[in-house]
Design a protein around this nucleic acid. Structure first.
Lengths: 278, 278
DNA sequence: TCATGTGTGAATGCGTTCATGCATGCTCTG
DNA sequence: CAGAGCATGCATGAACGCATTCACACATGA
């Protein structure tokens, strides 16, 4: 199924909000687009039936059935996609990442370690999150999401004394666990931070790429996500997903009212019109 | 497409000659079977329209549309009905991401848009990189890597006037393109930033999750990476990989001596003992 | 503040599709 | 050869899908 052609078909014109929603739905459900009628389509998208016919017209078709016929010829192409096409260089890069994710998936068959880490982190308040250099963005991503349900997440991305200050203040405020991201390569400064954390009484969860590397011995719990370095820049899909998984497990480990506050947070954001409605 | 299931559906009952002809036609044209009406189907097979409705009834369906719906669910099923192994919740999360990456991979069969974007960004000096809220970490990740080969990358993650200041300074210094990350949901402030960028003469590459959303119309080039939101926290594996792909393409678009400087950078880091040796 | 244009949903009318009754032709049997 | 049983095509009424109209909400600019 070739969604790029469909994309091209839908993308050209300037569309109204409701029409964009229709286009989006069709891109996400190209199969259904081939046979759905105006009424059913309108129902699923959540717009009026009239908007659907107008949508077809806006795309340059005389009638909706005409538009649907065009979609059919795109979606139901006579199985042109030979399965064994040559993948280009970039596709190979993605393919490598897919393998990484498969490996991560298989490694998560046993949720014990993940749940243990999630429980410990969810209970620690405040929760320091460490990430240096290339791992700093990941720490911030985690922090962004975690803050929605955890009351006091503190992302520390500056090495040395600054990080030590942050750790000390966290301990004073009652923290007993910290989370550290350390993708390859392993900054010396992160090792120092981990040893410091241990010295001030913190236990640490380390997210890294190998179960045994120069940093793991300084952590109490280690979660691993494979990283491939066959291309110019290291890949981070697996660690990003592991980050999501950890958040997911943490949410489950948090008390109910905290989980509810996440929804409240979203509702509040909508009310403040932080995001563009579509 | 699995024609055995269709065969099974059509084969069971005893059918009259005309009905057999209909069944045969459907087996030979399973695609059409999904959407053809009684009249068109009757026409193609060479029987009367009434025979088609009776055909559906003979197969045990109340009405013809009902029969057609059954055919659809057979013909249009995702075919590869899964590894059927029991995956736990977290593994399902990873599985979703794998699907996202596959989708991304297929979308990258045509490298035209990616190369075009990479070429434009590589040539722009300085290069402003925009990311707000949840997209800020991604912008920083990009910035971290890009800075290794590009002389002047400026990550802007604060909305409003601060971002505008950064864009203005970049334009004054000679920038003509900007890169913006906008994963869902789409901050209003990012839309403002994009319109501002256009007003001050910048063209923009937008990395987002849908080809059509409230922001795409404000960008000159759009790269899309699917994001799934079936879990509590949005996933970002695909966008992370797309970020890597873009970096990879940019590196290829940069002059040779810049690429060499990347190696020099690494060598220097090793000499400074930034990383722990393993 | 009002006027204008745009976008949207509810209601309406038309055209098509589908199901059913009826007449015809075929096949098998006495 | 005659009659019953079945299959098939044609014709008609009901149901459905689609396009159009109208009224209203909203944003924009004088």
């Amino acid at each position: 199924m070739d969604s790029t052609a469909l994309r091209q078909l839908l993308g050209g014109r300037r569309l109204s909000p409701a029409q964009r929603r229709i286009a989006r739905y069709l891109l996400e459900h190209p199969q259904e687009a081939a046979y759905l009628g105006t009424v059913d389509l309108a129902e699923r998208v959540g717009v009026s039936q009239a908007s659907v016919t107008r949508f077809a017209f806006a795309l340059g078709f005389e009638t909706f059935p005409e538009f649907r016929a065009a979609v059919r010829s795109l979606v139901l192409t006579p199985t042109t996609n030979g399965p064994a096409e040559e993948l280009n260089e970039i596709q190979l890069l993605v393919e490598t990442e897919i393998r990484n994710l498969r490996s991560l998936r298989d490694g998560l068959a046993d949720l014990g370690p993940l749940r243990e880490a999630a429980g410990a982190l969810a209970a620690s308040q405040p929760l320091p999150v460490l990430g240096l250099r290339v791992s700093a963005p990941l720490a911030h991503l985690f922090g962004y999401f975690a803050a929605k349900a955890h009351l006091d997440v503190r992302v520390l991305d500056c090495p040395g004394s600054l990080m030590e200050d942050g750790l000390l203040r966290a301990v004073d405020a009652g923290a007993d666990w910290a989370l550290a991201f350390a993708l390859p390569r392993y900054p010396r400064e992160m090792r120092d931070a981990l040893t410091f954390a241990r010295r001030v009484g913190l236990r640490t969860v380390l997210v890294t790429d190998q179960p045994i590397n120069p940093l793991t011995e300084h952590a109490d719990l280690v979660l691993t996500a494979p990283v491939s370095s066959h291309f110019a820049f290291d890949s981070h899909a697996a660690s990003t997903v592991l980050c999501s998984a950890l958040l997911h497990a943490m949410l489950a480990a948090l008390p109910k009212e905290r989980q509810a506050s996440l929804d409240a947070f979203e509702a509040m954001a909508a009310q403040r019109e932080v995001f563009v409605a579509d």
